[in-house]
């Protein structure tokens, strides 16, 4: 393995130019050999993929509103403070040299604890092999100097790949230009290192509230409060010992 330090790489998904072609979904499936996620007619929108999961690593959302049709390609956020990685008991989830979050499927024990830990509901367990799966930001392609398959396939550059600091600057300019054009609904999501997960490696330009796209409005990495949780558990443990001791004191 070469240990050359790399910059943090990321995705900037600019939904204002997404045309909903699902090329990213297809490219992801093909490159990563992701199994069939079922053909479900959901009868809600043009979206029959549904949601991110073990067998869906890019998901294009469609929201019809009067006068406009919103489309957005969702993906694992590759959080700065990733709950999935923190709570994984075996170390199967790790942080790569590109600062992305990847599951090593040969180490994954299938406990499924990462699944409810993710504040975005991204990672899931594939029942066929009992392991957790999600987007790797095409770790193999990155190591070979290529960009991820979804970004490569996107015909409108809605999905942009690159060093995260550059993407953040580009996104800032883009949102300012949209505001100047009067599209004041444009906003960035996940770009700020001050948010509840320390900023995401895959961030978005949205045209409506995050929850409209099925994204949490104020996600927080659950392990941020881990110290507090253990403190309360500790108080309860001491309380238990004290209470039990008291039950015997009265008698002896």
């Amino acid at each position: 393995m070469d240990e050359t330090p790399t910059r943090r790489m990321g995705f900037f998904t600019d939904t204002s130019v997404c045309i909903g072609c699902k090329a990213c979904e297809v490219a992801c499936k093909e490159w990563n050999d992701v199994p069939d996620d079922g053909f479900v007619f959901r009868a809600t929108s043009y979206d029959n993929t549904g949601a991110l999961g073990a067998d869906t690593w890019r998901h294009v959302a469609f929201i019809e509103q009067d006068g406009r049709w919103l489309m957005s390609s969702d993906v694992c956020k590759h959080c700065t403070n990733a709950a999935c990685l923190d709570v994984c008991p075996t170390g199967a989830l790790f942080r790569t040299e590109f600062d992305t979050v990847v599951v090593q499927s040969d180490i994954c024990n299938g406990c499924g604890y990462c699944v409810p830990a993710c504040p975005y509901g991204v990672i899931d367990r594939r029942e066929r092999d009992g392991r957790a799966w999600k987007c790797t930001m095409c770790y193999d392609r990155l190591r070979g100097g290529l960009e991820p398959a979804c970004a490569k396939a996107c015909p409108t550059t809605s999905i942009q790949f690159g060093p995260l600091d550059e993407l953040r600057e580009r996104a800032q300019e883009r949102v300012e230009r949209l505001h100047a054009e009067g599209r004041t609904d444009a906003r960035l999501y996940g770009e700020s290192p001050d948010d509840g997960v320390g900023g995401t490696g895959a961030f978005f330009l949205l045209l409506d509230e995050p929850e409209t796209y099925g994204l949490p409005p104020d996600p927080v990495v659950t392990t941020r409060d881990l110290g507090e949780m253990w403190r309360w558990a500790g108080v309860a443990a001491f309380g238990l010992a004290g209470a039990v001791a008291a039950c015997f004191l009265r008698r002896s």
Binding site: A51, V115, P116, G121, I123, R125, E211, G214
Partner: peptide, 11 residues
């Protein structure tokens, strides 16, 4: 988003 869950249920 069409009433779909945001976080995934514990398994």
């Amino acid at each position: 988003y069409y009433g779909q869950p945001i976080v995934k249920k514990p398994i």
